[in-house]
Design a protein around this nucleic acid. Structure first.
Lengths: 189, 189, 189, 189
DNA sequence: CTCTAATCGAGACGGTACGTCGCGTCTTACG
DNA sequence: CGTAAGACGCGACGTACCGTCTCGATTAGAG
């Protein structure tokens, strides 16, 4: 972690510039020159902080992905899965600015892969679900679908409420994976 | 459609070369020079057939995607959705060489997007599912998840039988979308 | 020499096309495709007649250059050099269409070099002028300057009469080379 | 004018490489890749300095041409034209390395045209020679012939002395243009 | 006048050079 | 004396032409 104030300023500027540009164009088609121009830093300065474009994306996304995963994975084990799903959706809604960029921006596909990759290494060998469902596939499907549904949600003009999305997510993804029926009672409250 | 024997030969060579290289490396990191070298054609010849790399990928994938979608979408409407799911899995197993490249190769993300894009424009305004589920999200989730599960399947060392995959696919994706319970009876036969 | 009517037609068309295009653009910047398009022949047909662009230019120019040289070289030996100069100018005036293309068109530099090359090999070791003037330089200067003056003449909007040009040519080039004073008497007639 | 040491180094390397290659091959048949390879610079660097091959040639030649012209044109007006001609020849002999490349190398034709072009725009409307000689033709012939004779001189194995060439140049070109007889007296000294 | 072989148009192909763009490194001039 | 500015080597891009080649379609001239 850098302590020099200038370094911190540069990193923040680069991160913000990347997120801003991802709302306009696909990640692959961004150039480092564009990012540095937007960030207001020198071109070479970029390389003093990151070896390449992907590294910057990682720096922006990896922590956030870990945070989100920390809320997603337990959903599959929690006693009350619907409540957990709700918490997940509320968290995303609370950070919608950043997650809009990551879930619907030009880097969605890359972030999605990283999301699943982290999930896989997190759950490794831990879970034992129903016998008809290979555990690895459960993780891939669960995290992938969750990512997609959240991405769809944030990509809409008129966004649904977090509650509605939680319901959908639970019915389409969570419940089929764990056979939970709790949602209806929770929703009935 | 070209009729000249030379054009047909070149196109086939380029298509095959792309599929071969996709088994080794990510689509973005392929160069056109590599593709033409592998195909045994001249570099400039590539551009006589396709404006860019993406166009070649489309030429390879679009028709196959349409075929697969023609089997996927009806699954959601068929009386016996489990049988339809089985048919889908058997079709993929029957063309596993090509679909391995498209589903698990370096272009999976792009093919996935095209798969969903085609599905969306196919189903446009047609379907009316349960009221709690926006129809567009149903399509995105259904096709996306199907794509992922098939991709996971073909990416495994020891592949499951088509029947097992159909069961999983039906339980995780199809049934939750349409509330069908038919699978169990069918599987019981 | 081809006898087939089709071959003759093609060659003529190509020759004419080259001359026409040379009035518009430099020889180097002409493409064979342009020439064949202008000639109304197929692209490959060009190569059935000439191995490359230069060969076509040679076919157009070489004979004409030889003709002109046959009138130029003797000028330096003739008893009455001014009369010979006049004859030369009249000949050029009589074929001004072709010579305009060759002397002022986009191939002038190449034709000039060929003109001097032919002259050099024609006069080889023959001439013995004044001792202060190396014979080879005499040829180079004589033919080169003649070419330039004729080129300047045909490139003018309002062309001088052949007589005036002959006078200039004789005073500037011929007389200094051979010390002839005959012109004045001839002009006085 | 660039001040950055790297830019200056690159430009010098490119200029030298061009002159070196011109001693071996014709300008048209040089490729930019060859020039940069010889210069030891990257291919793209060429275009950071010059838009094309011609621009590099100009950069090499234009100043030198201007210098030489500054000595050539006055020859026609100076009181003692023979002395001026001598000075011209001595100047060329003093820079024979460079002028050999420009006058006899593969770019001679192009340099020649530029030489005449500059002379024409320099003398524009100034000179009034004898009435039988159009002033523009006088310039074209004078500069063109001077160029040729100097080129012939530097192209010889055993070069004549500058004095001899000055004599030839004066007798063949200068004197006929201006009617000067001074040379003989000067040479007689 | 007919048949057969040469010539033609069309244009795809393998090459090679072009001029452009972006990367990641490394030097330089300036503050 | 440190840092931004940016020149550089590299390598892929997409374009343009070259000269070769394979097609049928046509057409000239020998029989």
């Amino acid at each position: 972690m850098p302590t020099d104030a200038r370094q911190i300023r540069s990193r923040k500027a680069l991160n913000a510039a990347l997120l801003a540009l991802l709302e306009e164009r696909s990640f692959d088609h961004l150039t480092i020159r564009e990012i540095t121009a937007r960030a207001g830093t020198g071109y070479a300065t970029f390389f003093r902080h990151y070896p390449d474009k992907e590294a910057l994306l990682n720096d922006v996304a990896t922590d956030e992905i870990a945070n989100l995963l920390a809320m997603t994975v337990p959903v599959l084990y929690e006693a009350n899965s619907y409540e957990s799903t709700m918490a997940l959706c509320r968290y995303v809604a609370g950070h919608s600015r950043l997650w809009s960029a990551l879930l619907t921006g030009g880097a969605a596909a890359i972030v999605r892969e990283e999301f699943i990759r982290q999930a896989r290494s997190l759950v490794e060998d831990v879970r034992d679900g129903p016998e008809w469902l290979p555990s690895d596939l459960g993780v891939v499907h669960g995290t992938g679908s969750t990512f997609d549904i959240l991405g769809w949600w944030l990509g809409q003009e008129n966004r649904l409420d977090a509650e509605d999305v939680a319901t959908i997510l639970h019915r389409l993804v969570i419940a089929p994976l764990i056979g939970d029926k709790v949602e209806k009672r929770a929703a009935a409250q």
